[in-house]
Design a protein around this nucleic acid. Structure first.
Length: 644
DNA sequence: GTAGGGTTAG
């Protein structure tokens, strides 16, 4: 049987052979580099074949023979492969061999260090340059603007102008991105006049940057003016103007322009759709959002993370969290924004348990690090979902700097809201006193609201007075405080606060509600008479009010800020846009169908109550999105627990 | 060698 054992041994051999072969291959690699004799041409071939490591070894052997072309090829390869170590070796080689790189190569080094996330090294390189040209200035400005260091970018731009270097189209396109938003539009306007002088206004890159700057500074008319004057348009300039409208909350205008440009032949890409989805989220236009989603799938538009994040947000803001979660679960890659969008969704729907579960999952997966927005979503989710103990634990994790950053004032605000909502008003006040920040009006306002819900007149009075000082123009604060006094029977104080409110010229944004029926958005304002069914609706609201009163509805006159008699007040209440939209939904949808209404401001107590009666008397599920959150009302009970 | 639009929160 010895022969059999011998054959078996031979059969096992290939493994050993393959190991021997791999070591032989290694030896061959060793032999090919460095080449003999040293050959600059060989180095360039290696670079263009992606064999950077070998090229770097070749560099070492070439020594003083290294010249411009070889350094250029090496730096190019290092930039493409983002190899910090490699580029550093090339730079060190220049220094060691006393090679004095020309402006071109020094600029390449700036770009290289910037691409490898070494901004300070890029700047060091830039500062060491004895002569600079427009490209080196622009490369450095671009490095700062990519990292959102707007101040440094603009500072360099001004230094560049003083050094008598003429900016080119690249410089203008770059520097404008740093103006946008950060410095208001005054500086941007000055740069605009330079652009006109240099005759770059019609350049498509410069034009897109310019209109984006105006849009981000809130000057949408100027942005549109630049857009209309562009001699040619492409997907970027079109997307920039559409997203300009969407980011300013001019959602209808954004959609209208998108449609117009589509008719004119614009080819959209994933960024365009992401911007359109933002506008549709604002409008809560679920039908249209679904259309965009199916279009994206049908035409196989690459579903980059950005677009998927927009879809998560769109579905959640349109009230369909199941769809949001479906998109989220099907993602092959998620960024912190994907997690945040999903967490914010649950939070705004008052689903505290889901927020905590998803946050735990994020931690378990440990692929993406939570950021400051994640914590805002988790804290406000715990607050809205009645999970204050878990919320406080999370806040303490933040204080312990578990993720490398400390809580900001907004996170402290969430804790105040959480304690107040849970009825721990005294604790909330103590917490405010110990905060490392001065409380904002929003934080005090949330505590004042808690005082009213939990009838704590002492703290309410204290907080209310501070609020009157720092935010005298906000009518809501006076109303809450006077309601609080009324609940304690302190009628003189009620009158005093109401008088005070009349004295200060208080303003209130116009209320607006809308509802989507058969993919058409119907908008209702509190004080206009524009809707074609307005008369019919007013009559129906009155009828409903009578019917609901029989079921126990009592109009809450405290929601009326005008100083009119009770009868007038009730009339004003019945004209609230939410009631019109709710009634329109009730008569415009089949029996038993859910009603979905959106309000641009916080919903008032009376309309919230009215919606409860719609759900109770007509057996409808009402989902109401206001400025802050969703209210899911079923059989007279709201998911917000009457606290919002 | 240098360039433009985008997603969460507020």
């Amino acid at each position: 049987m010895k022969w059999l054992q011998k054959i078996k041994r031979q059969m096992r051999r290939p493994k050993k052979q393959s190991r021997a072969f791999s070591s032989l291959t290694f030896t061959q690699q060793q032999l090919t580099v460095p080449s003999f004799p040293p050959n600059p041409q060989n180095l360039k071939t290696l670079c263009s074949n992606g064999q950077l490591t070998k090229a770097l070894i070749e560099m070492a052997t070439l020594g003083l023979e290294m010249r411009f072309e070889e350094y250029d090829a090496l730096l190019n390869a290092c930039v493409n492969q983002r190899t910090l170590r490699g580029g550093q070796r090339v730079h060190a080689h220049m220094i060691k061999t006393c090679y004095r790189p020309p402006v071109y190569l020094r600029t390449r080094l700036i770009v290289f260090y910037n691409k490898c996330e070494c901004l300070s090294d890029a700047r060091k390189m830039f500062d060491e340059m004895r002569e600079r040209n427009v490209v080196s200035w622009t490369a450095m400005i671009s490095a700062y603007s990519q990292k959102a260091h707007s101040f440094e970018a603009l500072n360099l731009f001004i230094r560049m102008l003083r050094s008598d270097t003429e900016p080119n189209e690249f410089t203008f396109a770059t520097v404008l991105t740093s103006c946008a938003g950060a410095f208001g539009f005054e500086l941007g306007k000055q740069i605009h006049s330079l652009i006109i002088k240099s005759n770059f206004e019609s350049h498509i890159y410069v034009g897109s940057s310019l209109l984006d700057m105006y849009a981000k500074a809130g000057r949408i008319h100027e942005a549109r003016g630049v857009f209309e004057c562009l001699p040619e348009r492409d997907v970027v300039s079109c997307t920039a103007i559409i997203s300009g409208y969407a980011q300013l909350g001019l959602d209808e205008e954004a959609i209208e322009l998108f449609r117009k440009l589509q008719v004119e032949g614009m080819i959209s890409n994933y960024v365009t759709y992401a911007s359109v989805l933002t506008a549709l989220s604002g409008l809560a236009a679920l039908g249209h959002g679904k259309q965009v989603h199916s279009h994206v799938l049908r035409f196989e538009i690459p579903s980059y993370v950005v677009l998927q994040n927009s879809l998560i947000d769109m579905y959640s803001k349109c009230g369909s969290l199941t769809f949001s979660r479906r998109v989220f679960d099907n993602m092959s890659e998620r960024t912190v924004i994907s997690w945040n969008a999903m967490l914010v969704g649950y939070s705004k729907h008052g689903m505290g348990r889901e927020v905590v579960e998803l946050f735990n999952l994020m931690r378990e997966e440990n692929k993406v690090k939570p950021d400051s927005v994640t914590y805002l979503a988790v804290l406000s989710g715990c607050s809205h979902g009645g999970m204050e103990d878990r919320g406080l634990e999370v806040f303490h994790e933040m204080v312990d700097c578990k993720d490398g950053f400390e809580p900001e004032i907004e996170h402290y605000g969430c804790v105040v809201d959480m304690l107040g909502r849970a009825g721990r008003v005294g604790e909330a006040l103590e917490f405010i006193k110990k905060m490392p920040f001065e409380p904002t009006a929003a934080i005090l306002g949330s505590l004042l609201g808690a005082c009213r819900v939990h009838s704590n007149v002492d703290i309410g009075e204290f907080v209310g007075q501070r609020l009157m000082e720092i935010e005298p123009e906000n009518a809501g604060n006076y109303v809450i405080l006077s309601n609080l006094y009324a609940s304690a029977g302190r009628w003189e104080d009620v009158t005093r606060v109401r008088e005070l409110m009349k004295e200060k010229a208080v303003t209130k944004d116009p209320g607006r509600s809308w509802i989507e029926l058969d993919q058409i958005l119907h908008t209702f304002h509190a004080s206009d008479r524009s809707h074609p069914m307005r008369e019919e609706l007013s009559a129906k609201v009155k009828q409903l009010s009578v019917k609901f009163k029989e079921a126990g509805y009592v109009p809450d006159m405290s929601c009326v800020l005008y100083d009119v008699d009770e009868e007038q007040k009730e009339k004003v209440l019945l004209g609230h846009s939410e009631k019109l939209a709710l009634t329109f939904g009730l008569i415009g949808t089949p029996e038993g169908a859910p009603i979905r209404v959106i309000k641009n401001l916080r919903i008032c107590v009376d309309c919230h109550n009215f919606a409860k009666f719609v759900s109770k008397v007509y057996g409808r599920k009402v989902s109401l999105r206001d400025k802050n959150r969703f209210h899911h009302i079923v059989e007279g009970t709201c998911s917000c627990g009457d606290y919002w």
